[in-house]
Design a protein around this nucleic acid. Structure first.
Length: 269
DNA sequence: AGCTTCGCCTGCTTGC
DNA sequence: TGCAAGCAGGCGAAGC
């Protein structure tokens, strides 16, 4: 599942190869992958990439003359950087879009479950149009306290809400709460005194994950087709029944807000 | 408004 | 062995 570390890894890999390149062809075959209000992908033809960044879990490419391409990978989206003459790594069965650049480089999009979204606009206010909050590297404890104040939903569910904090998905929500030693079922409003610890834990986990190129459970791949390495460092996610790395007690798995949630009942209060 | 559930979608896993 | 049901979940919509 491409969360912040996975998208950050992909974006870093795409930045140098794409900066300054001019689009000579672009096509998205499956219309359902467009986010509402998007211009067609071919609108990018004859424009040049001037920046490649990440906002929350989205990859954001900006162009001159003015245009912006926003890609959300959903659950199984893959961005492959393809060079002329190379073998494609993606499954052709799930090939949905390509952007061709002068010189022969292509950006290819694969997505088995098709939960991803493309959004093309002449200009856009990202935070407003995406309706997302700051990511954990940008957010302050004050911001977190403000958005959690009085909330009765479980903190785990609120960490998944991109309007509260952007970039965190199911894996890193569980890992963050383990490091912060907070029970995922705790009411959001009761976490206010620990907002600083939640934020610093999120940053620690996300930074570690980025250092390892993200977590590959099944589908996630970097831009060059290789896998991430952080999955072997998960403390709780996917470790139901195994021993807690801190106290040895079995990790529990419950459903919270419809999501599988992993935690140590002894270490997380 | 806030909280929860559902639907989208495919492929791997589980159970009969 | 084979088939059907179960499960995974990011995100937006719908229901309460």
């Amino acid at each position: 599942m491409p969360e912040l570390p996975e998208v950050e890894t992909i974006v870093r890999g795409l930045r140098d190869p794409l900066l300054g390149k001019r689009v000579v062809g672009a096509r998205l075959r499956r219309k359902t992958l467009y986010r509402r209000g998007s211009l067609p992908l071919r609108r990018l033809i004859a424009r040049t990439v001037v920046s490649v960044d990440r906002v929350g879990k989205n990859a954001v490419l900006r162009f001159e003359p003015t245009a912006v391409l926003l890609i959300n990978l959903g659950m199984t989206g893959q961005l492959e950087l393809w060079e002329a003459g190379a073998q494609s790594m993606g499954n052709p069965k799930h090939f949905h879009a390509r952007v061709r650049f002068a010189g022969g480089t292509e950006l290819r999009y694969f997505d088995a479950r098709r939960f991803g979204h493309f959004y093309v606009a002449e200009a856009c206010d990202l935070e407003q149009d995406l309706n997302i909050g700051p990511d954990p590297f940008i957010a302050t404890p004050t911001h977190l306290r403000r958005v959690l104040y009085g909330r009765t939903a479980p903190i785990k569910s609120l960490l998944l809400d991109q309007r509260v904090l952007s970039g965190i998905g199911n894996i890193y929500a569980d890992e963050t709460l383990f490091l912060a030693r907070i029970d995922p079922r705790t009411d959001g409003g009761e976490v206010l005194p620990n907002a600083r610890r939640v934020l610093s834990s999120a940053r620690t986990i996300l930074n570690r994950a980025i250092d390892h190129g993200g977590s590959t459970l099944r589908d996630y791949r970097k831009h060059d087709g290789s896998k991430g390495g952080f999955q072997v460092h998960h403390a709780v996610y996917g470790r139901e029944g195994e021993g807690c790395i801190r106290c040895g007690r079995a990790i529990h798995k419950i459903m919270l807000g419809g999501r599988g949630t992993h935690f140590c009942p002894r270490c997380q209060k």
